[in-house]
Simulated assay, not measured.
Amino acid sequence: MRKIALLLICISLIACKKENEINSSLPAEASLVQQLEQFPSISLFTQALAICEDTLNASPNEITIYAPTNDVLSAFLQDAGANDFTELKANIGSEFYRAWLGCHFFPSALRLEQMQTAYIPTLAYNPLGQQIHTYSQREKSVLALNGQYVNLISRDNTIPSGILHISTEKMQVPTITKLVSANGNSFSILKRALLLTENSLASLLNREDQMFTLFAPNDAAFDRFFQDVGCSDLDGFIEKFDNQALENLLNHHIIRGSVDISSLNGHNIKSLYQDKELSINLAHGNLKVSNNGGFEAHIVQTDITAFNGRIQLIDQVLKLP
């Protein structure tokens, strides 16, 4: 048994050495497609990249790639009813195809242990050219991206352009709803509240054909709000008022369009609740959003971007005027 174990270790070391030799033999100016062609288990991902008509298939520096295996992408093509990626691109449109592919890329070279729990930018862009984010959550060697656990069969591979991880999952193009749902640390109450509204605001903010901006109160903000209105929690609020009151409240936190919030300093914007106005102001270096009822909140994180809009994280619930 000991000899067999030693033999397996030797085989593993030889395989690792061979892979490193393949990587180190690539010239620094090799295109990204050429670099990924050295990894047979992701040949379908390399094909998907090869038909992407933009800078993704050039040779960017200092990037991280989470590349799905051939089995994953083969099943994906079958589910999508496409024979290959050229057909998939034609079916879903170049814009969405590029966004889907770009969600597998991050603009800095990060080994697994360097991934943080945060919203981080990808190399995907929404229809307005705004850089899409992913919610990354890591605990030791366990990583989730947009709420989806990532099983890495090979990690921290060094290529001339950065770091390659090979995964048994493909990335999803995040909507506002998906970015809220993924962040259980800050938005567990908001996630459930959006689902409980009479007309399902979660579905509205999951649409890919419309743009919105959501002023998103975190859990601490909701806890303070419930206490202020004499409720113990979200269920208590619905019981005391009703689902329509919850929908009205949340609609007051949504505006149409995906806006760069800093560009709205000094402007009034209309929420989805009866076109009631919200004001954006910069005071003492801090952006604030307020309504004409005098309730205001600090915008503590700006312009978290999804395919269909943006999230502005705020520290207070905006009460209805």
Rank of each mutant, 00 (worst) to 15 (best):
residue 1 M to P: 09
residue 4 I to K: 06
residue 11 I to Y: 06
residue 19 E to T: 08
residue 19 E to L: 09
residue 26 L to R: 01
residue 32 L to S: 08
residue 33 V to A: 07
residue 34 Q to H: 04
residue 35 Q to E: 14
residue 43 S to G: 11
residue 55 T to M: 04
residue 57 N to Y: 02
residue 66 Y to G: 07
residue 72 V to F: 02
residue 73 L to Y: 01
residue 75 A to T: 03
residue 77 L to D: 06
residue 78 Q to L: 13
residue 81 G to A: 09
residue 81 G to S: 10
residue 85 F to A: 09
residue 89 K to H: 03
residue 95 E to Q: 14
residue 99 A to D: 08
residue 100 W to R: 14
residue 101 L to D: 09
residue 109 A to S: 13
residue 112 L to A: 05
residue 138 R to W: 00
residue 148 Q to R: 10
residue 151 N to F: 06
residue 151 N to A: 06
residue 154 S to Y: 00
residue 155 R to G: 02
residue 167 S to G: 05
residue 178 K to Y: 01
residue 183 N to D: 15
residue 183 N to S: 12
residue 190 L to N: 04
residue 191 K to A: 05
residue 193 A to H: 09
residue 199 N to Q: 14
residue 204 L to A: 06
residue 210 Q to A: 15
residue 214 L to D: 08
residue 214 L to T: 06
residue 216 A to K: 01
residue 225 F to R: 06
residue 227 Q to N: 07
residue 227 Q to L: 08
residue 227 Q to S: 09
residue 235 D to H: 01
residue 238 I to L: 09
residue 239 E to C: 11
residue 239 E to K: 12
residue 242 D to M: 10
residue 251 N to R: 08
residue 252 H to S: 04
residue 264 L to P: 11
residue 267 H to N: 15
residue 273 Y to S: 08
residue 276 K to I: 03
residue 277 E to M: 11
residue 278 L to I: 03
residue 283 A to N: 15
residue 283 A to T: 09
residue 287 L to V: 10
residue 290 S to M: 10
residue 293 G to E: 15
residue 297 A to G: 12
residue 306 A to T: 03
residue 315 D to H: 01
residue 318 L to D: 08
